[in-house]
Structures are given as structure tokens and as C-alpha cells.
Amino acid sequence: MTEKKGVTLKIYVMGKGYEVPSDLTIMKAMEYVGYRPVRGAGCRGGFCGACATIYRLKDDYRLHMALACQKTVEDGMYLTQIPFTPVRKTVYDLDELDSSGTLLLEYYPEIARCVSCNTCTKACPQDLDVMDYVQAAIRGDIEQVTALSFDCIRCGLCAVRCPAEIAPYQVALLARRLYGKYVLGKEKQLDKRLRELEEEKLGEDVVQLIEMDVGELRASYERREIEE
């Protein structure tokens, strides 16, 4: 990375201070000062949750949560990364389950310990209503859990902060899978298409295209109708 000119500010990586350009993300700032992470960097685009970060600001008692690849540095930021969260995942055979929401309590009984403190929601770098979906999970409302948790990237910050030691994102994953498999279920038009394929009705047209010379193929391509 080329050295940048212009406004700089001071950040503290695990307590150690560095001057960095003001328009960098936490991840890029850490690299700028010399880190080359093995852990703590993944997709770098806000989708994988590998770069969960906790920081405090000067004269602020609160802990803030962010993704290092999605948060611009601020002056006086004291930060550390939480690149791994030890959580329990229940092993299950999805084929043997059903749409009953009580499964969530059965597989993750600790959700009943939720004290509705909302710390999970405050911790979520995706701004999801985590506590609300934990409450929905207790009620067995898998549709609601799916809707509220859908954008979860599984960074683990909610699990780190929960005083009841719940790992909300694991519970949500099970709820979404149950909802997808047993509530949305198998779509009818797809059934029809799969039957047509099984009866080998649609392969011949593809073979015809494969056997065309490039000139014919180009002409067919140019002639094809485009759906409005």
C-alpha cells in the first residue's frame, strides 16, 4: 500500500498507539501499520464475519462492536479483534426434524435463560434485532426468526456479549433451515421441471445446439427472444 498524505489520527491496536490516515477502515489501518493477518480477515467485504472487532473510544465507557473491514478508524480508538468465538453447535439430522418451533428450545435449551437485556442487539454489527429473534425462538416462531436473522453473518459478537451465554446465531441457523425446508418446502413449478428432465424431454434441444457450427450458433443467439 502506498503511504498516504493528508489527515492522520491515532489508533491503539491492543493498546499500542499508531498514527494512521483518517480514511482507512480498521482492517486497512492495521495493515498500514504493519499487520499481515492470518486470522481476522476473510472476505473483506462485510459478508463472512471473520473480522469481528471490539473497541472503545476516548472518554467513552462503552464497548463498541464492528467489522474491521466495514468501519472507518476514529481518533483515539482502542481496539482488538475477536477472530474466533468458542460456541456449541448442536448436531442434528435435518431430515428427521419438522417445522415445529419447539425444536429450538429442545436443541438449544439455554435460550430460555434470555434476560431480555438487549446486549446482543447492541453488539450486532449488522444492526439486527437479535434479542427479538431470540424471543421469537423461545416462542418457536421460526418464520419470525428467519425474517429477523436473515442478514446474520455469524461474526459471533452477540455470543461473546450475552450474559446468559446463548449463541443466538446458532439458534437462528437451525430456525432458518427448518423454515426453508419444512415451511417453504418444495416448489411446484420446480417439481414439474424436474419431472420433465427425468423424462428426458429437454435434453435434445441442447444436443442440437451443441451440434451446430459456430455460424449457426451465433445466428441462433442473435435471434433469441428476450423476455420483457
Binding site: D95, T146, R176, R177, L178, G180, K181, G185, L194
Partner: peptide, 10 residues
């Protein structure tokens, strides 16, 4: 179809 069976929410 496989994704539906895995519970992928399209």
C-alpha cells in the same frame, strides 16, 4: 431442489 432440501431460503 437439493438446496430446498438443505433448507436454503430462496
Amino acid at each position: 431442489r437439493w438446496h430446498e432440501e438443505l433448507g436454503v431460503v430462496y
